[in-house]
Design a protein around this nucleic acid. Structure first.
Length: 757
DNA sequence: CGTGGCATAGTTTTT
DNA sequence: CTATGCCACG
């Protein structure tokens, strides 16, 4: 085959350079996946490398799946032996095989964020720390960063020096790790950390994988953290055939420990590195690309490169500012409808998951099918977690968290005090909670509860026996519906029926139960397809698969639907038409990053904006709202600084006439809530490069107000009322007024323009 | 032992 | 505003 036919010179160079360290700086839409897949094909077909010796690491399972598919279609045979995987699944596979060297059992559980939180809460309680002062989240993030930096408990303790607060954190870290180990469980960060640990303590295992993975490729390299870096460096330490692909401008996971230094310093770390820049963009129109470049060039400390394209100019970038956030959502939905394209062409992106709600509501009211990526995770739903905890208990009885979650679900009359007694006993015996349940009868003071616990234990044992029989390939004789082979599907069904989970669910209400049972059905389908797709399906394998899914992995693009998702989830994807919603200072960039004294925080937001812009192929629309509800109160925002960074001649701000139209039509539906847009004419216009929008909405805070609590005032729309309170906020005075006809309203003084009577 | 009501905290982003 | 968590009561 002619591998290089469809590639440009730079791409071809990257594909053919197969030996030694290679850094590919690939701008957005520059065809990096094509380079990677062709490179794999080249290794196999031109250089005669055994596919078995190739490892490609991606960020999400979705990306891995796509790469696998493309390699399959490119390579005649053997492509199946190429190991394409995410960091996390790679590590799980390695650990399942060798973790016993680290003192864990190979049926370990994987804890997600919820599990971590529960465990952390227990730890804080156990250490008798004030839960007001030591909250789970901050503690988790301290520990997570430590693990991402490969700092173990011992080093952490040393580094804490005499610092009291850090010493406490060290206590928590130690206790948390001990608890995980006791439960034979690893959290997400551990998966990487422990694999590095394994490689460091066991030279044989390391060498085995070094021999195995002679050619390594890493996608999205800009988002690797120290632990992941070390993992790769160890693996590539013998043959040195390491090819990383990334774009420093698209590094958006600093909060998760990603170290942009990994890509910026790659050349120094790996002497003899060949650097290839891919700067031609094949994805977007020139206008979109110019806008992206205009935004990102405000960042300092980036590798110099300029994306260019041979594509046509395309339409201008659109910007629209609405009054209320729901008008913004409606505006987007109507705009999509007006274009008359396939719904799958559209993506609406936003900074925070909370923003999806309004968009969903509007999609529903306009009858537009949508697909929501992220948000409340399927696997976080109560009923799904319940069933998964049954499965986890069956797979790994040492997972106390799982056992404790389900021991009284459905209700078995095992209450908090009985559970407490078992916990106490297990603690004294230095054994697991489940083991405590097994010996419930011999625990003093258990009373009637002992029998109930026994019942639970024998149920679990029964399930475990069936599962073991299935895993060993023995056909289950009894309880087989027709001639279907017993498997995970059957196991979940049995759990549902035999524990009484289904009947309890049905007892509690029609609608609710129906929805939950549908979710469980979806889980059963998942289990069935897992079993069908895998050579050697196992309970642990299934649990892994469900715990390592990213939100985008569950994105189903088979149906013609609009996609709603966060900017983070959108990384690596592309759509013909993209809306960037909520372009407001304080939301995007987030107020956290604005307040931060670390200037690189805002740069990370800017990179996120760059990622968002470059998702669009043909048409990009940015939208903002002046008012948005958050935490129960209205927030007023000006247009995002990122919008201002785009030169005015690239932007189409809606003409005043068109805006009036849009408002008029949206009013029809929301008349009662509508707040006349004209009242929001700027009080003060502070000069901006781009006329028509930008800095127009700068509120001039008055030094004092002429009215106070108790005074009668008049409002342009709400009529007369009595001032209840005046709060002196940072940006403006906030006034609460009880209107005679409209009730109590809170408003900002400079906007409301209240007139004293 | 279970439930229902109230209080409080929380919003970045996720494998 | 909404989700979660805790406490008091039945």
């Amino acid at each position: 085959m002619e591998i290089s036919d469809t590639l440009n010179p730079k791409q071809r160079e990257a594909v053919l350079h197969t030996e030694g360290p290679l850094l590919i700086l690939a701008g957005a839409g520059s065809g990096k996946t094509r380079v990677l897949t062709h490179r794999i094909a080249c290794l196999i077909e031109e250089k005669g490398v055994n596919p078995w010796n190739i490892l490609a690491i991606t960020f999400t399972n979705k990306a891995a799946g796509e790469m696998r598919e493309r390699v399959d279609s490119l390579v005649k045979s053997g492509a199946g032996s190429v190991w394409v995987s995410t960091f996390h699944s790679l590590c799980v596979r390695i650990l399942r095989r060798f973790i016993e060297y680290l003192g864990y059992e190979n049926n370990f559980s994987i804890y997600d964020a919820d599990d971590q939180k529960t465990l952390m809460k227990q730890v804080i309680k156990k250490l008798n720390l004030d839960p007001k002062q030591y909250r789970e989240r901050p503690m988790m993030s301290i520990i997570s960063s430590a693990k991402n930096e490969l700092i173990d408990t011992e080093t952490f303790r040393k580094k804490s020096g005499g610092d009291w607060k850090l010493g406490k954190a060290a206590d928590v870290y130690e206790a948390y790790q001990a608890e995980l180990k006791k439960n034979n469980a690893l959290d997400f960060d551990d998966l990487i950390f422990k694999t590095v640990d394994l490689f460091r303590v066991n030279a044989e295992v390391l060498d085995y994988y070094r021999e195995r993975f002679r050619y390594i490729m890493v996608d999205e390299y800009q988002d690797t953290n120290t632990a992941q870096f070390e993992l790769i460096a160890l693996l590539a330490g013998k043959y040195g055939n390491l090819c990383v692909v990334g774009d420093d401008d698209q590094s958006i996971y600093k909060f998760r420990g990603a170290d942009i230094g990994n890509i910026l310093n790659f050349e120094e770390t790996f002497p003899g590195t060949k650097v290839i820049k891919l700067e031609q963009n094949y994805r977007s129109t020139a206008h979109i690309l110019d806008a992206a470049n205009a935004v990102i060039c405000n960042n300092k400390g980036r590798k110099q490169k300029t994306l260019w394209t041979a594509n046509e100019d395309g339409p201008l970038v659109m910007f629209r500012q609405y009054g209320q956030a729901y008008e913004e959502a409606e505006g987007i939905v109507r705009d999509m409808l007006a274009q008359g394209r396939n719904l799958r062409d559209f993506a609406v992106l936003y900074r925070t998951n909370a923003q999806s709600r309004l968009l969903e509501e509007k999609c529903i009211s306009y009858n537009i099918p949508y697909r929501l990526v992220g948000g409340v995770n399927f696997y976080q739903r109560r009923e799904i977690k319940d069933i998964l905890c049954y499965l986890k208990t069956i797979a790994n009885g040492r997972d106390d968290l799982a056992v404790q979650r389900i021991i009284n679900v459905p209700k078995r009359g095992i209450g908090a005090s009985s559970i407490g007694k078992v916990m106490e006993w297990a603690g004294r015996q230095e054994t697991s909670f489940y083991e405590g349940c097994v010996h419930a009868a011999s625990i003093p003071g258990m009373g009637k509860a002992a029998g109930k616990i026994q019942g639970f234990v024998s149920q679990i044992q029964d399930f475990a026996r069936r599962n073991q029989a299935w895993e060993l390939g023995i056909r289950q004789e009894e309880d087989v519906p027709q001639n279907r082979r017993y498997g995970l599907e059957g196991l979940i069904r049995d759990i549902l029926e035999e524990t009484g989970y289904r009947s309890e669910l049905q007892a509690e209400g029609e609608e609710e139960a129906k929805a939950r049972l549908e979710n469980i059905d979806e889980l059963i389908n998942k289990a069935a397809s897992y079993c069908a797709e895998n050579e050697e399906p196992s309970l642990n394998g299934f649990l892994e698969e469900v715990s390592l899914v990213a939100d985008v992995d569950r994105m189903d693009d088979s149906q013609d639907r609009v996609t709603l998702m966060t900017l983070h989830s959108a990384k690596g994807l592309e759509f013909p038409v993209v809306y960037l919603s909520g372009m407001e200072d304080g939301l995007f960039p987030s107020s956290m990053s604005i307040m931060s004294d670390d200037p690189t925080d805002i740069e990370e937001e800017r990179r996120l904006c760059y990622v968002g812009i470059t998702r669009a192929r043909e048409r990009l629309t940015m939208t903002a709202a002046r008012m948005r509800m958050s935490k129960g109160e209205t927030r007023y925002s000006k247009v995002s600084r990122f919008v201002e960074e785009i030169p005015g001649d690239l932007v189409d701000t809606m003409s005043p006439g068109a805006r009036a139209n849009a408002n008029a039509s949206s009013n029809a539906r929301y008349e009662e809530k509508k707040f006349d847009g004209r009242q929001f004419k700027p009080q003060t216009v502070v000069g901006g490069r781009t006329p028509g929008f930008g800095k127009e909405f700068t509120i001039q805070k008055a030094s004092a107000l002429e009215y106070g609590a108790g005074d009668r005032v008049r409002h342009g729309r709400f009529g007369d009322g009595t001032v209840q309170s005046v709060t002196d906020g940072a940006r403006d005075f906030e006034v609460a007024v009880e209107f005679d006809r409209f009730g109590v309203k809170k408003m900002f003084a400079s906007i409301a323009k209240l007139e004293k009577l």
